[in-house]
Simulated scan of single mutants.
Amino acid sequence: MFGAPKHFPGGGAVADLDWLAGLRVIEVTTGVAAPLTGRILAELGADVIKVESRAKLDVNRVRVPNAATAGIADEETLRLEGFGLLHEASASKRSIRLDLKNPRGKDLFLRLLDTADAFVQNFAPGWLERLGLSVGGLLDRNPRLIVVSATGYGQEGPLSSQRAYAPIMSSLAGIEGLIGYEDGDVVGASATALADLNCSFYGAYLALAALHGRTETGGGRHLDLSQTEACAALVGEAMIEYARAGKSPGPVGNATPRGDREVVPSADGGWVVIEGLAKDSDEYRDLLAAGRPREDLVSSLRARGIRATPVLSPDEVVADEGFRERGMFQQVEHPVLGPLTTSSIPWHLDGAVPRVRSSSPLFGHDTAAVMAELGLSPAEIATLETDKVLY
């Protein structure tokens, strides 16, 4: 079931997983929610094919790449390949170019879905219908197909047709309303795509459950995921408190159920989180007045039995021995950008993390190979390229 565990620079065992070997996932996605679902399935062993088109590029292929990549390749290549989130969301997959608005492209898409076990998509409801397709029609054609639809607000409801962006969804889900100083104004701006990320993992779990529940002749399912609802599930504790006490939840500053938590500066410009030490105590004032660097302050607090931890920046997380020993990060080689560090899927399975099989694929890199798998000849593929069906 596992390949032999391997150790990569920095520590941590990684293993090739074949749990989903033989399963094929077709993906028409953009952004993070749903692309990350596909990546999870790929690193569990599935063959995940990302269907893309110049007519409607993944948003992560049109964003301005990091300045650090300047000069590595031409501007167009960097625009398509250089944005970091593309590699986090779409590692370990294959990519093909296919214009679904072209009748021949749509026919090839349907033939591809005939070979699939799952179809993952996250465009607003109605896009399939505009192509003359529907989820029901796809399930009639392939009764064992698992369809995962991950959209901002679900397939139905008053917001279902609206565009979804991370801060809007976390605001509607109640997350932003909990961020701010105690008894003060809402500050919000958590600046993390919680709706996308939480929805992606739900999508993977549900896809696995649905795949397990199929029969030889049927059992296909349509899984309708709302990114906003997935995000709202993270504030369940506040909702329960409202139901119990009737008080509308709001910003609580640094308060925790066990007492106050303080985030304090250190002498070297860092920050430290302290729990269980009253800020009006002499001990608290003495510790801060001592002017210790961050690591010294943390060590001193822990020596006194006080819970304390440094606030790490993302680059410090990547370099942290604890995370590296656990295999939280892996290096992959990108054909244009060179070596890249990407986060692992955060699971340990029989003592190893799933290997990141590759960086995100170059745009359309596997088009000819996948078309050949459908039985097309080199001449037919060349004609489709010329006619911009494979576009």
Rank of each mutant, 00 (worst) to 15 (best):
M1R: 07
M1D: 05
H7V: 14
F8S: 09
P9S: 13
A13I: 07
W19C: 06
L23S: 03
I40V: 15
A42C: 11
L44P: 04
R54I: 00
A67C: 11
A68G: 14
T69D: 08
G71I: 05
I72P: 00
I72W: 05
I72E: 01
A73F: 03
E75Q: 15
E75S: 14
T77R: 11
R79D: 06
R79T: 06
L86Q: 07
L86V: 00
H87I: 06
L100M: 08
L100W: 01
P103Q: 04
P103G: 01
D107E: 14
L110Y: 04
R111C: 05
Q121E: 12
F123W: 14
P125R: 10
L133D: 02
L138Q: 15
L138P: 15
N142C: 05
R144E: 09
V147P: 00
V148P: 03
G152F: 11
Y153M: 07
S160E: 05
A166V: 04
I168Y: 11
S170L: 10
S171Y: 09
L172E: 15
L178H: 03
I179P: 01
G184Y: 12
G184S: 15
A193D: 12
L194E: 02
D196M: 05
L197W: 08
C199R: 05
A204K: 07
Y205Q: 09
A209K: 08
L211R: 07
H212P: 09
H212A: 15
H212N: 15
H212R: 15
R214S: 05
E216D: 09
E216F: 01
G219D: 10
T228D: 00
T228P: 03
E229I: 10
A233T: 14
L234C: 13
M239F: 12
K247I: 08
P251W: 13
V252M: 13
G253M: 03
N254S: 13
N254A: 12
P257C: 10
D260A: 15
A278K: 02
A278W: 00
D286L: 14
D286G: 13
R294N: 10
V298F: 12
A303M: 14
R307L: 08
V311K: 03
V311M: 11
P314M: 06
E316P: 10
F329C: 00
Q331T: 15
E333M: 04
E333S: 06
P335K: 00
P339K: 09
A352H: 09
V353C: 14
V353L: 12
R355T: 06
V356M: 11
S358Q: 02
S359D: 04
G364W: 02
H365D: 05
M371T: 04
E373Q: 07
E373W: 00
L374G: 03
A379W: 12
E380P: 01
